[in-house]
Amino acid sequence: MEPIETKKDYQNYVDKKSPNSPIIKNCFNAFWVGGLICSIGQIIFNYCRFRGIDLQTSNTIVSIILIGISAFLTGLNLFNRIGKFAGAGSLVPITGFANSIVSPAMEYKSEGYVMGVGGKMFTVAGPVLVFGISASIVVGILYLIFNTQSITLV
């Protein structure tokens, strides 16, 4: 074997030797679990519409129910098992967002309710909120500038 001299050589060697994640299995599990979660959401939505609830309220009801279930499963120490199995399938839908807020809240409860739960609750979801909200503000400003019709409407 060639002696490893540079950092780049070593990185290449590590990449070659490190075991890869089982991508096909992960993708398959992510696909069907993610699909199942979205189907459950759609079933709730359709039921709401069937009962004559308007579109916007139905959307909100779906989010609330899925977030509630996800937070509850996180508390029962079950969601991390689902996540380990399904990966992006359970993390990408709104269930993953709920889990990313509930799990630090549980983890840091031992440090107290104010500095622990309150202070550390958004350690995982924080970046998503900061950049998500910032992006929406930027897009809103651009919309206001380039869509002159909206200004006349305002």
């Binding site: 490190s18 994640s21 508390g75 399904a86 990966g87 509930v102 799990s103 549980m106 983890e107």
Partner: peptide
């Protein structure tokens, strides 16, 4: 895990390494 990585209840996948 709490100090250096993610909360235990977070549903993420650990890499093989």
């Amino acid at each position: 895990e709490k100090q250096f990585r993610f909360p235990l209840e977070l549903g993420n996948q650990r890499p093989q390494s």
